[in-house]
């Protein structure tokens, strides 16, 4: 049997290998390290290339004078953005994600905003996407805006139908920003499942008072992505259904 050799007690003790080289060969080591680094950098570059870079950069809020909220005078600024069914922007003909997945819904034209601290921010959202029922009807209520209301197509509402939500615009404060800050505005859906891309939209207008300085993350709370629970794809990738709001 093969492994008989295991029990062959070695009496000969071979000793020094002729020509044995005591010096380490640096080339093999260096090559190994270089290849390992290259592999790591390559994998990192792959993931980096998957990272969404907002093509339109940061949208800085437009100044609109000053406003008085609850007796406090503060700067007033405006922001406007859209939510599209397709990231290729078939509504206005400009792709939000030239290199991304064109069939995923996305906020556009950018999803990185900049607003001043402690200012009244009036946001106008044009919502072009269809939708459905929220996982958590809690997010169907408008929260954190001035007076807790938003305007949908000119009508003042405090909540929308949880079964017909396209997206939500939800911003959370975290430690390092303003921990108590919270904003949730549901954006009602347009038509039925197939009525996308036809240019119809809801215009949602709301105002909120920005918190202290920091980078706030925002995301959509309506599962509008891919996979079983619709949390995949645009929900999990940067730049489609999430972004940042810089308060400076």
């Amino acid at each position: 049997m093969v492994a008989d050799s295991n029990l062959q007690v070695d009496q000969t003790d071979v000793g020094e290998e002729p020509g044995g080289d005591d010096r380490a060969r640096p080339l093999g080591l260096i090559l190994t390290v270089v290849i390992a680094l290259a592999a790591t950098v390559g994998i990192g570059a792959f993931f980096w290339s998957q990272t969404y870079q907002s093509p339109s950069g940061t949208q800085v809020a437009q100044s609109a004078g000053t406003a008085v909220v609850n007796g406090v005078t503060m700067p007033h600024v405006t922001l406007s953005f859209q939510s599209y069914p397709d990231a290729n922007g078939s509504v206005n003909g400009v792709a939000i994600h030239p290199a991304g997945n064109p069939s995923w819904p996305a906020f556009g034209m950018t999803n990185v905003f900049q607003v001043p601290t402690h200012a009244l921010v009036t946001v106008t959202v044009s919502q072009y996407d269809s939708g459905g029922a929220l996982n958590n009807p809690w997010f169907a209520r408008v929260r954190g805006t001035v007076d807790g209301v938003a305007t949908v197509d000119g009508k003042v509402v405090t909540a929308v139908d949880p079964n017909n939500v396209g997206h939500t615009f939800t911003v959370r404060g975290t430690p390092g920003t303003d921990p108590g800050f919270f904003l949730n505005v549901p954006l009602p859906s347009v038509g039925g499942e197939n009525q996308t891309d036809v240019g119809q939209h809801h215009t949602v207008v709301f105002s909120f008072v920005s918190g202290s300085a920091g980078t706030y993350a925002w995301n959509c709370e309506f599962p509008c992505g891919t996979m079983v629970a619709a949390f995949g794809g645009p929900m999990g990738a940067y730049g489609y259904m999430s972004g940042f709001m810089h308060v400076v």
């Binding site: 959370r172 404060g173 975290t174 999990g236 999430s242």
Partner: peptide, 11 residues
């Protein structure tokens, strides 16, 4: 608890 677990925060 999913994608935005890191932001599940209250004060």
């Amino acid at each position: 608890c999913g994608l935005y677990h890191a932001f599940m925060y209250s004060s």
